[in-house]
Design a protein around this nucleic acid. Sequence first.
DNA 1: AAATAGCACTCGATACACATGAGTGCTAAG
DNA 2: CTTAGCACTCATGTGTATCGAGTGCTATTT
Lengths: 343, 343
Amino acid sequence: MDIELSARSRQILEAIVEDYIATAEPVGSSAVARRHAMSLSSATVRNVMADLEEQGLLASPHTSAGRIPTEKAYRLYVDSLVAFRQVSREEKREIVRHCRRSGAGLSGILKDTSRTLSQLSNYMGIVVAPSFTSDVFRHIEFIRLGHRKLLAILVSSKGAVQNRLIETEDDPLPEDLVKMGNYLNELMQGLTITQARERILSEMVSEKARYDQLMSRALRISEQAVTVESDEIFVEGQARILDQPEFSDVSRMKEIYRAFEQKGQLVQLLSRCMSADGVQIYIGSETTLSQTSGISLITSRFVTSSNTVGMLGVIGPTRMGYSSVIPIVDYTARMVSRLLSEV
Amino acid sequence: MDIELSARSRQILEAIVEDYIATAEPVGSSAVARRHAMSLSSATVRNVMADLEEQGLLASPHTSAGRIPTEKAYRLYVDSLVAFRQVSREEKREIVRHCRRSGAGLSGILKDTSRTLSQLSNYMGIVVAPSFTSDVFRHIEFIRLGHRKLLAILVSSKGAVQNRLIETEDDPLPEDLVKMGNYLNELMQGLTITQARERILSEMVSEKARYDQLMSRALRISEQAVTVESDEIFVEGQARILDQPEFSDVSRMKEIYRAFEQKGQLVQLLSRCMSADGVQIYIGSETTLSQTSGISLITSRFVTSSNTVGMLGVIGPTRMGYSSVIPIVDYTARMVSRLLSEV
DNA sequence: AAATAGCACTCGATACACATGAGTGCTAAG
DNA sequence: CTTAGCACTCATGTGTATCGAGTGCTATTT
């Protein structure tokens, strides 16, 4: 691409981006010259701006308005920003404070985290729980609920719990339930949920299972139990984005809320972020959430003691306070990782 | 109150309410005369409307606009509507279809229900899970997670599961955990969670507990476990209310989303509805959700096999299609009750 | 006495003209 | 290469005129 920009152009672009982030209004040449007083006349700035527009970094809503940054400009801005990340003292304290306070299990911690993110950033906070399937199996237990109905409870070593209603062909005896539980606990000890599932499947076709009634039944039942549902997602602060002036347009907002309505989309979007380490930034159409939405996403992974991976981040308008949000997300991810690895 | 209305006035009021519900625009005298062609001139209707306004049933946004119903008018309208409730064939089929499909435990059913409500009504669907505390205790189980950290799993006879992280003073031996579990299961068999809690508290001060180390420890730990958190709430279709023209005003919407942000308010509001049987209707300020919001709420209780009570309903604008939503809520509540009593 | 027709009046909504000013692009001079 | 100057553009705001839906009141009809 055409990344060759003079230092001056770069500086001016940065000034425009920051101005626009701060005010949400098109910035004009004179504003740049004045505010960012680098001893240049507005005319000069104008020339530079024309160049930048040429290169697709700026756009003008109409002839006699200032310019606004394009996604490309944000991208450039963010990339050049990566160098200096830091979180303010108070923010650190705030994050730590929130982390310390929350004690209600894994779900509780993550829910609190999404709230913290929202509060600190003033945008929407989002947390995706570490995929249960890569958790290490800890315990399985069956409880009889009624005629041919069992409740299977599956606990991971991190304390995540999944429960599942299972219909059986017949009613197992209570002592058989215990035996089955013992057998399965033995079988899956030390494996991840995914591995456990594979183990069960392979065991089902083994010689032994053919002849042991109880065992084969246990396997059949547990196979349902370890088939885990979709990930948990915590979203907090949806109302905050209403404060952003660019969403004062009603139709725009509708679009966004619609997009979030089915969390499925979010999951898809976020699973992409899982793969890479460090803070990831998706700007505007890069999110594939909605073409016209003008939404950006800043995420980071966090890890747990058992090396499973979750995702947390902030969703806001393209015109987002990147310089403050990026370090917040970064720091929060680290804190959550540390907190979870203690458990 | 001044409920003395001639049959004609009542008819006209009804026409106005229905017109307004359909169009969301102030209705004028001639519109009523024409549409609801009861062989009256617009002038006559005007006189009646003036009377109705006198009585606080109508209001005019400004001099030369039509009239819109006040909350009082809606109230009257709804009360007189109670007589004829019925659900259309397709809706019934739809509701039943949704109920049948959802199989993923209690939470799953309720979540699906809230979605169904939203889809059928085109407003916001909401379901409050039956309070766990009045459920019958079924099983308690402890799992060691790490140093001085236990996970307590509490299962009700209906299959609702609560899990709680507990910090202990020391690390109990595995076999002690089992013993403690057995003891507590015995102790709380057949009680509701609330009763179980009381039992534990009373047992803690008993003579025996003083001398049995293990037992007293079990009681102390379980006391934390049975202290249950707030109810589960399922809200679906938040974006739908954006379609309502009265919320095209941005500031209005903000207010509403803010109000919903902390579900606490909702809980409070909804717990009121638990007490009475049948469909409950709260119009506008009767909801106490927000003075200016113009929000109405239609709810009904549902019951489970163990006689615990949950709540489901629809939230929409005051200008809501009461005549169709009321039967939907009613029927859905019945269906869910039936579905849950099967379990 | 109740219902209706007629009519003046109100007031939001719509449209148009005009002024304003921020901001631009271009050109020519420093 | 920078800058001053200037004509031009165009969104925004304001004032004014018009329109029409809808009302309230009064006189008339049934």
